[in-house]
Design a protein around this nucleic acid. Sequence first.
DNA 1: GGTTATATGATATATTATAACTTATAAAAA
DNA 2: TTTTTATAAGTTATAATATATCATATAACC
Lengths: 171, 171
Amino acid sequence: MGRLKKDDKVIVPFQPDRHDHGQCISEAIAAAETYCKKNGLSFTPLRRQVLELVWSSHGPIGAYELLDKLRVSRGNAEPPTVYRALDFFIEHGLIHRIESLNAYVGCGDPARRHGGQFLICRDCKSVAELDDIAIARAVIRRADALGFEAEQQTVEVVGRCSACSGEIKNG
Amino acid sequence: MGRLKKDDKVIVPFQPDRHDHGQCISEAIAAAETYCKKNGLSFTPLRRQVLELVWSSHGPIGAYELLDKLRVSRGNAEPPTVYRALDFFIEHGLIHRIESLNAYVGCGDPARRHGGQFLICRDCKSVAELDDIAIARAVIRRADALGFEAEQQTVEVVGRCSACSGEIKNG
DNA sequence: GGTTATATGATATATTATAACTTATAAAAA
DNA sequence: TTTTTATAAGTTATAATATATCATATAACC
Ligand SMILES: [Zn+2]
Ligand SMILES: [Zn+2]
Ligand SMILES: [Zn+2]
Ligand SMILES: [Zn+2]
């Protein structure tokens, strides 16, 4: 394994086993609320609820799975309800869409605008969000060399997380 | 604009305006046929036809658009026909799927296994495939630092190509 | 030739996402 | 404080993308 350098952040790590996830959610919601207030965005009860549901899974969640959960309290919810909330949050950087999974995750660092960088474990399906400046810069540098103005970049890496590759090695 | 270095390749460039596209297609098909022969894969007439249709668009094409084209000569074709062919080629690196577009493009360099790296112009919808080792290495280095075995990486960059950003600048 | 594996045909259905119109609520203007 | 305007949410319908399953054909192998 290589070494981590400063400037390299893991926004949402693998294996969120023993953290206080209730607190984790409420912090994320509070951060989102603050962010919306600062930016004049309306953080409605519906949006709050959708964001809570996204965070409560603490991993990628599909729109229709989200819809099912939403219906527990809002029996009448329909697809546009959830898609609108998702679009709103994606537009403002509070949720990322993982293209290769058709799924959504809460962003752990919405204040700092960035493209999504994800490590997706093909075995345990866990997902880690990165915010690796070296990767982002390599992309921008290359685009720039071609006269391409990069506005939004997405990096999705499929492989095996340390826990899952360890299991085989050890097992 | 930055400078290109050796090792940096643009596999499929923007603006394939004045190239002999008939030849471009037939070269790609010939390369695919050779590749399949070498690797004991059966390059059936149906698969050939699907690959030709993918290349003939010289850009990303959707599965159902492909199906429509296929039906010109195979009136009975159904979705699984085209998805199977696409899956076959994707599995063997001859076609890439662009996740953010739900679309497919022929790979310009199947012999060298690589993840897809795409610059997608939001205005003219053209797509350039890169094979930038610096980007790929930055991804692998970071994954490695986290004990993540990267197996497949996808990079999709949305922005504006030089032609489209030039149009605005020039008026 | 008989067996096995692979590929394709054909039908049905699952999954993901959006269009379009209506009603409710909030913000701004008069 | 009414009126107006903009934004958000409810509702119905449908579009777009992808897969499951079973039947048939073709190719590879023995
Ligand atoms: Zn948590
Ligand atoms: Zn993020
Ligand atoms: Zn794992
Ligand atoms: Zn390629």
